[in-house]
Structures are given as C-alpha cells and as structure tokens.
Design a protein around this nucleic acid. Structure first.
Lengths: 222, 222
DNA sequence: GTATGTGAATTTCTTCACAGCA
DNA sequence: TGCTGTGAAGAAATTCACATAC
C-alpha cells in the first residue's frame, strides 16, 4: 500500500539513506541557511546550542540530525562552519548545478522564473513549457518557452532531472506525467491538487492557498 | 523554553483546540480540497476510504483527524459532502473573508498579488507596502502600494489580521515586526530566513529554495 | 570546563482492529 | 452488510542525560 504522506516523496527501494527521518531532511536545509548566515557574519565556528538558538530547533535534535550522516563537530569547540557548510551541501546534493524545467508560464510561472533565489542556490531554469500559443516562443535572458508537447523531445537533449509545475489545478496531473515521461525525477508542484506520481519520483507540493488556510485555522483557534 | 518547530506556530495558551496534532491541521486543508473536487464532479457523499484513496492519506487517519472536531459521518454511508465541506471550512476559519497585507512588492510580491487562488478562497489583499519610492503609490485594481512606515497607521483603519512577507531575507525580520506591531496575528513568510515572532503570532515559512534543496536530496539519495 | 554524539526515555503521531450504528 | 468513531497497539520522532573527547 503506498500512502505517501503529504510531502514525503516515495524514495522507493531501501538504500543507505532510508534510515533518515523525513523531518530531519527538511531541517537540514534550515541548518544550511543558518550556517551560511553565520559565516557571512564572520563567524568561524558555532556550537549546536548557538545554531539551535538561531533556528529555533532543539540543540540535541540538531546533533542527532547531523549524526545520521557523520561526525562533523569537535567536542568542547562546536562545529567548524566552513566544513559544516560543505558537508551539508554535499548531503543535500547541492554541491552541483541542477537544470530545471518549468511547466506553466502564467503569472506564477513567470514570477518563479524571475525569482533569483533559485539561481543563487544552483537551480537553473533551462526551458519553460506552456500550451498557450501566445506564450510559446517567448524568450527570456536564460531560456525559451516551448510547446508542452515538445517537452520529451527537448529534455532528451537537456537531460534536466528537476521540474516545476505552475499550471492550473486541472492540468497538474498531466504536467507531472509529461515530466515523468521525460525522465524528470524530482518535481515541485504549485498546483493545489493531490497529484499522483509513479514510484521513484519525488514530488513536493507547495500549495499557497493551503498555507493560508492553515494560518486561518490559527487565527480562529485562539 | 520556546523551541517552535519549523512550521508550528506557537498557539500560546491552552485552549480547546490545543489537543489537535499539528499534522492533522495541515491535512484538513487537503481534505477540504478533495471534498470540493468530489462535489464538482457531482458526488453527494463519499467514504473515508474514497477520500483516502484520492488524497493518499490513510482512511483511519482521516477519520481520526475529523474526530477531533466532531462526528460528521454516517456509519454504513460515509460523509455527506456538502455538510463536510461546510464543517471543514468552519474548522479552518475560512467561512469568512480575510483581509491580507502584503509586505514587499518586488517580483514575488507582485506575482502573489496577481495570484487568483487567494481570492478564490476568501483571502483579499487590501494593501501592499514597500520601501522603494519607485513602487510606493502604485495602484492595482484592488489595492495601493504604501510606504512601509505607514503600515501601522493604515492597518489601524483596515484591521487586517493576516500578512504576507515577500521581501529580501535581510528585511524579513523587520517586516514581521512591523506587521506584529500593527496587530497582524498570522504571517506567511516567503523570505529564506529563520524569523522570530512573539508568542501568539502564527508564522508559516514558505521557503522555495529550501523546497528545491529537499528535492535535491532525494535526487542524490537513490 | 565545554560541547559533541548517542542509547534510553519520553512524547507525539499513525495505524490497527473492532464495537456499534445505519 | 458497510462504514464510522475510537481505544489500544505500534511506529516514529523528539528530548533527555551522560559517557566521552577536546
């Protein structure tokens, strides 16, 4: 029985990494961010307590999270930040550039494509796809908008492994399947629907409306 | 000791709702989405098994989640969808319109302001704020962009309780504090930093880069 | 003295399994 | 019969607390 939790990509198969709790993985990114900030402030090292204070995550939790991947600290001293950043980047797999396909070039798609944060972290949109003839053929500084039908053909050359889905809800399942067929293995889905992806494809849902609804719950509940 | 988890707003105080697990709240929104879709397809009722199948969430989980709030089903029949939708909307507090303040009118802020999904769910952006004189004074169909300094003054009239932060990372903490001082009690933060908010203010972080990094982890790990 | 890494204890969340109702 | 609602069991994640290392 599948039953993936809301944002838990099915990492099918039992590999070395599969002992790592899902929440740990989501926190690693927060640690990395914190370490980068500390380094920008000129710090050379920090204790788990310091990182804990800054991220709002328990210090023991941080140490345990890191312990799934190795021993990166020095007792009595803490963590050497440059080394820790390198290790975290390696663990997260962001020690390399990743090409990204964008499906959907409406408001949200365009906004995402001009969002500089992705590029700064090594995620580069190399092609966009849409079904609207008005949009097809449009060129930005870094990529062109193609007909969605051309996706498999074009990615056969590009070989991108990451996709972003920014299409209306009814088209999302189709977009996911198109990406899956084109060998994309990780997808960030902005469409507000539950989508099904075959095993071995990681999908993360970023449903902005849902986030608002969750906030709304907290407004109501106290 | 505070230690809020990554996206767990501190609902300070012990109230009736505080027995509800955090993950339950995040799933309610998914159920609601599913129920809406089923109704659009003309269904009148559905079993927990059917909703489970569609959302990818375990059926027992769904029943238990709902049970925190009451008994909404009929043994032998399932859930009457219209009633369930009403109840879920009430539970989530989206049975009313919510005014929203947008802080940051750069690329992301503009994209969010033209995102129709919020409006469709009853979240209405009523004012935007920025520090850039180029942007201040700009008017859209539904709101105007004001100087960030004017936020408290303007919200004294508007009385919005929800805010969206779409500013660069270094400005995020300031934006959160400005909102908090203006009586905003729930904030959706898009800036990629750990921000601190006082007790009683719910903050949800939507860090797009972090989402990509998490996907990247899955690419690497199998 | 200080701070890590980790087994054990605890807490939280999920799933099972079934009594009870339509 | 079919499906809900829920106590109890089980699994997972978090936190404690301390032996160990610098």
């Amino acid at each position: 029985m599948p039953t993936p939790s809301l944002n838990s990509p099915e990492t099918s198969g039992n590999d070395f990494w599969s002992k790592v709790p899902q929440p740990t993985i989501e926190r690693l990114s927060a640690y990395l961010q914190c370490v980068r900030t500390l380094r920008e402030e000129g710090e050379k090292a920090a204790s788990s307590a310091e990182i804990a204070r800054r991220t709002g995550i328990n210090a023991a939790q941080l140490r345990k999270d890191l312990s799934y991947f190795g021993e990166f600290g020095t007792p009595g001293l803490g963590y050497e930040l440059e080394a820790l950043e390198t290790q975290l980047a390696r663990i997260m797999g962001i020690d390399q550039e990743r090409d990204v396909l964008l499906v959907g070039f409406g408001n949200l798609g365009r906004a995402l494509s001009s969002y500089t944060g992705f590029g700064r972290r090594g995620f580069k949109i190399v092609a966009a796809f849409d079904v609207d003839p008005e949009k097809i053929g449009h060129k930005t500084a870094h990529f062109e908008v193609f007909d969605l039908d051309k996706l498999p053909e074009i990615n056969a050359k590009l070989g991108a492994q990451v996709g972003i889905v920014a299409v209306p809800a009814p088209n999302a399942q189709g977009a996911i399947e198109a990406l899956a067929n084109a060998q994309v293995r990780a997808i960030l889905n902005f469409a507000p629907v539950a989508v099904k992806a075959s095993d071995g494809i990681a999908v993360r849902n970023v449903d902005l409306t849902s986030q608002m609804e969750i906030l709304s719950y907290y407004l109501r509940s106290h």
